[in-house]
Structure formats: C-alpha cells, structure tokens
C-alpha cells in the first residue's frame, strides 16, 4: 500500500467515525432534563403572574423559554388524557380562573395530585402567556412547605 493510499484510507475512516459521532451526539442529542435543571428565576406565583399581566412584552422577553421556580398555593390539579396540570389560580377572568398552569413530568404527576391545596414549590420550563394564563411545561415538584 502506498503512503497516500494509507492517508486517504485514514481520512475516510476518520470521516465515517466523525459522521457517526455527529449523528449520535448532535442529531440525537437528548432533550434537556428539566427535573435537574437549575432555575433561572425563582419567585412567587403571584409575582410571575402579575409581571406577565402588567407588562406582557417585558415578561415574555425575560421569562419565556426559561426555567422558573414558582412558589405558591396549589389551587387544584387537572387531568386531561395523559396530561396532569397543576394550577395556581390567581385571578377571576371572563372565562374562569386565570393564573399559572403547569404540565407535570409523568414521574411527578402522582406526587402533585397529593399536594392539592398545599403551599408548594414547582419548577418547569415557561413557554409564555396566552392572555389568560402563564404556561409551564415539564414541571417537577421541588418541595412542599
């Protein structure tokens, strides 16, 4: 085998290994683990809700896409199909309660159902405000008070 053949073969193998690693680690990179993620902001449910309600643009820029830690009284828990939603109801709107709605991670769904009416701390990924509620996804129970 000539030297340049070896180099070409080496480059070829390197290319294949690189592409495979790229595929595995970048294309297939896992979703962020929101249960372990550190919160970007930590406040009471009332404080987050009021900020969104009073200055939506500012709050959207600050909190959308961030991990929030919310402290408050868990008003109730709703279930819809496989979804469990923890609700901090904070105001009365045209169509019922308004507040913060948190879709729970499956492994925290049962935990939160047992905490209705209690003061708790929830953490999750904030996706924004739809003019009635602040919406959070991938939520987990941090502590109960």
């Amino acid at each position: 085998m000539k030297n340049w053949h070896k180099i070409l073969l080496g480059l070829f193998i390197l290319g294949i290994v690189g592409a495979t690693l790229g595929y595995v680690f970048i294309y297939n990179k896992p979703h962020r683990d929101y249960e372990k993620a550190k919160a970007d902001f930590s406040k009471t449910a009332e404080a987050f809700f009021e900020e969104y309600k009073n200055d939506k643009d500012q709050a959207q820029q600050t909190y959308n896409g961030k991990v929030l830690e919310v402290t408050g009284k868990l008003t109730h828990v709703e279930t819809a199909d496989s979804l469990t939603i923890a609700v901090f109801a904070l105001a009365e709107g045209l169509f019922g309660d308004e507040g913060i709605r948190c879709a729970m991670l499956p492994n925290h769904a049962q935990k939160v159902k047992d905490l209705e009416g209690r003061a708790i701390v929830l953490k999750g990924y904030c996706t924004g405000y739809n003019d009635t509620d602040v919406i959070m996804e991938k939520c987990s129970v941090v502590t109960m008070k």
Partner: peptide, 30 residues
C-alpha cells in the same frame, strides 16, 4: 402541543384558539 386555549360561542359560531409556540414538543431536541 397539549396546552391550547380555545373558546367557542355556540350561538354566533365565533371560534378562537390561542397557542404558545414554545409548548410544541418534538421527538428530537435538535
């Protein structure tokens, strides 16, 4: 997206949906 807001008025037929884009979940994070 499983947290879509919707209001329907059954008399006038008025129908509104409010969707948060970041609530869409894909199989792959990328």
């Amino acid at each position: 997206n499983h947290q879509v807001n919707s209001v329907l008025d059954v008399e006038t037929g008025d129908f509104v949906f409010k969707v948060l884009i970041k609530s869409f979940e894909f199989e792959k994070a990328l």
